[in-house]
């Protein structure tokens, strides 16, 4: 629950375990702020937000729903890629931008629909279903691109469209950030304030109870996997606009981070339940650490080690404290 933070201020060690991520976040923020001069500049924070946080966060929001429903989605990367592939191909074929955009999101939706059919109708375990879709998605991309050739749209004709998506701003806030804000608001309401979210969480807690309580489990699961895919599709569009191209298999980069962020986010709830706030915190933590380690001069390899150790430490703190209550 998103409010568990304010409801349960730390009275004991168990409650403290819910704050492990927050403490780590604040602590590391201070470390980076003092150790790296460039860290606390407006330009850097803006860069982290627009380039690291937004893309990952939108994917992770979708994963949050899937994990809430008791499942997992290994194919979010495919949704990112398919949206990007169709969007960029449509533009290259001279299709109008809004239409191309819709087609891109539609492609992601189809990936979600495929997952939904496999999971909600054919009752395949989410792990296997989405793993299968991931394999198929990779094949489709290789076939569509002659083995993985990127599609670049660097000519001036496209700059306007791409800039409108990724470089414009409204009221001083970059458009991608607006997109994120809208997504966060919508998903927060859906998960924490609407019947939909409560029902999804009930399915995650105990599918049998949900079914016996009159919840239409298959259609809820269908909505969840489609939602996750479409959110990932939004990231796919933003990503294509940012890099002005489609790069095959680039969506996979988000997969493990999005799952990681979601599960890191569960540690802020006593019931270890995914929440929008928790996921955002997880995303922010991962993005900040990547950026901070870079700025204090760690090379790419050590950054990876650092992130792993950090995530490990946060989890150990959170789970370890809860366990010894």
């Amino acid at each position: 629950m998103s409010l568990s933070l304010s409801r349960h201020l730390p009275k004991d060690r168990e409650s403290f375990s819910t704050l492990a991520v927050l403490v780590a976040f604040v602590g590391l923020f201070l470390v980076f702020a003092t150790q790296a001069d460039a860290f606390l500049t407006l330009g850097n924070l803006r860069n982290v937000l627009v380039n690291n946080v937004v893309l990952l966060a939108i994917v992770a929001l979708g994963v949050t729903f899937v994990v809430s429903s008791g499942g997992i989605d290994l194919s979010v990367g495919v949704s990112v890629d398919m949206a990007s592939l169709v969007f960029v191909s449509a533009l290259a074929a001279g299709v109008a931008a809004p239409l191309g955009l819709a087609a891109g999101l539609g492609a992601a939706l189809l990936v979600g629909l495929l997952n939904a059919i496999l999971i909600a109708r054919l009752k395949i375990s989410p792990f296997l279903a989405t793993l299968g879709v991931l394999f198929i998605g990779q094949s489709v991309q290789r076939l569509a691109t002659g083995g993985g050739q990127p599609i670049y749209l660097v000519t001036k004709d496209y700059a306007e469209i791409f800039n409108a998506i990724s470089r414009s701003s409204l009221l001083g806030v970059p458009t991608p950030v607006w997109v994120l804000i809208l997504c966060v608001l919508a998903t927060w309401l859906a998960l924490h304030r609407m019947g939909f979210g409560r029902q999804v969480q009930a399915i995650g807690a105990r599918p049998g109870v949900a079914w016996y309580s009159g919840i239409r489990v298959p259609s809820r699961l269908t909505q969840v996997y489609i939602l996750a895919a479409v959110l990932a599709g939004i990231t796919g569009i933003l990503l294509s606009a940012t890099v002005r191209s489609y790069v095959p298999m680039s969506g996979n980069a988000f997969l493990l981070d999005a799952i990681g962020a979601t599960f890191i986010g569960t540690t802020i709830s006593r019931e270890r339940r995914p929440s929008i706030l928790g996921t955002l915190l997880g995303v922010a933590l991962l993005a900040m650490v990547k950026n901070g380690l870079l700025l204090i001069g760690w090379n790419f390899y050590w950054q990876q080690v650092g992130i792993g150790v950090l995530v490990f430490a946060v989890l150990a703190l959170s789970f370890g404290l809860q366990r010894r209550h």
Partner: peptide, 21 residues
């Protein structure tokens, strides 16, 4: 335990899950 109450949900969430509307 399988069909009646979701033991990992709160008392409140269990009571209102079928009548949220």
């Amino acid at each position: 335990r399988a069909h009646g109450v979701a033991t990992d949900m709160s008392v409140r969430d269990n009571i209102t899950i079928a009548s949220l509307d």
